[in-house]
Amino acid sequence: MPDLFFVLYLNRILKRFMIRKLLLTLLLLYVVKMNAQQDNSRFAVGFNYGFGSEFNNRNYTFTNQFYKVQLYYKLKETKHFQYQILLQPEINFAKHQLLNFYFVKPDTPDYEQKRAEYTQLKSVREYVLNCGFLVRKPIGKGCSVYALASIGPMITDTETERMSKGFAFADVFAIGFSVKLNKVQIDIRPDVRHVSNGGLSSTNSGYNTRNIEFGVSYGL
């Protein structure tokens, strides 16, 4: 009887141990799965704010501030680099003024009236949908640098001496620095931007600006 009692007692201890071991194993597998899902997340969504102005130019002034929604998709990741595509709906609020009225030449129809009109300070609003390609290089735990090039269609609501009202294109080249904390990523991004209508209208001098953006994104 004592031997039977001892065997039953030992069997109970072993069962408890096996149950605990099984639960611990399941918990460990769950944690590994969650980490794998986090590492393999391909999508992120974010928001950027930026501002800038034209390169030094004696003919005109152009200042702008803009807001972007950032939609990221990770195409591929290697040992040293990560490749992403990016969709960027944007609204841009700008101020523009012609400084050199001789920019409007006498062969322009109603050139005197246009000189008087264009030399007034104007508010310009732009609606943009840029598509970009981003190459990222990790430089430490949670930090990375990257290069970004994007292009997309744009609608501008104001005619100026440099560009017609309506359809145009926005081209952007940027470099950036990111810090990632869990799923949250913080960005700082200097960039240069060119806007023109691609020759679709006779007025197509366009704008060239230097900007800086600040953003935050979240991995889905």
Score class of each variant (00 low, 15 high):
D171W: 10
T156I: 09
E161T: 04
T158L: 14
A149F: 13
E161D: 08
K141R: 08
A147Q: 13
G140A: 12
L148P: 00
R136K: 15
K165W: 13
Y146R: 05
K165L: 14
G142K: 01
S144K: 01
C143S: 11
G152P: 00
V145C: 13
T158C: 13
G140P: 00
M154G: 00
D171G: 03
E161Y: 09
T156N: 12
F169D: 01
T160W: 12
I139V: 15
M163P: 00
P153N: 08
C143A: 09
Y146K: 06
R136S: 07
R136F: 05
D171Y: 14
G166K: 01
I139Y: 12
T158G: 11
K141M: 07
R162D: 04
L134C: 06
M154A: 11
F169C: 02
R136Y: 12
L148F: 15
D157W: 13
D171T: 04
T158E: 15
R136T: 11
M163C: 07
A168T: 03
L148G: 03
T156C: 01
S164Q: 04
K137C: 06
I155K: 05
P153R: 08
I139L: 14
K137T: 05
I151V: 15
P153E: 01
A168K: 02
F167N: 04
M154W: 02
S150Q: 09
F169Q: 02
A168S: 14
C143N: 06
M163Q: 09
S144Q: 05
D171C: 01
Y146Q: 00
R136C: 06
A170I: 12
E159M: 14
M154D: 05
G142E: 01
P138Q: 10
E159V: 11
M154H: 03
P138T: 15
D157S: 14
K165S: 07
A147Y: 13
F167V: 01
M154P: 00
E161Q: 07
A147S: 13
S164L: 02
S144V: 01
D171L: 03
Y146G: 01
V135I: 15
A170R: 09
L148R: 06
R162M: 11
R162P: 00
A149C: 09
S144D: 06
K141V: 03
A170W: 11
F169M: 09
P153V: 10
V135S: 13
T160V: 09
Y146M: 05
S164H: 07
S150V: 05
G142H: 03
S164V: 00
P138L: 08
T160G: 05
R162K: 10
Y146W: 15
T156S: 05
G142C: 02
I139H: 04
T158K: 15
A170M: 14
C143L: 12
G142T: 01
P138N: 07
K165V: 13
T158D: 12
T156Q: 11
D157I: 12
C143R: 10
I155E: 11
I155N: 05
R136G: 06
I151W: 11
A149I: 09
V135A: 14
I155Q: 08
R162G: 02
E159P: 00
K141F: 13
T158A: 13
S150M: 09
L134D: 03
G152A: 13
A147V: 15
G152V: 03
P138H: 11
G152S: 08
I151N: 06
K165P: 03
E159H: 13
K141L: 05
F167L: 10
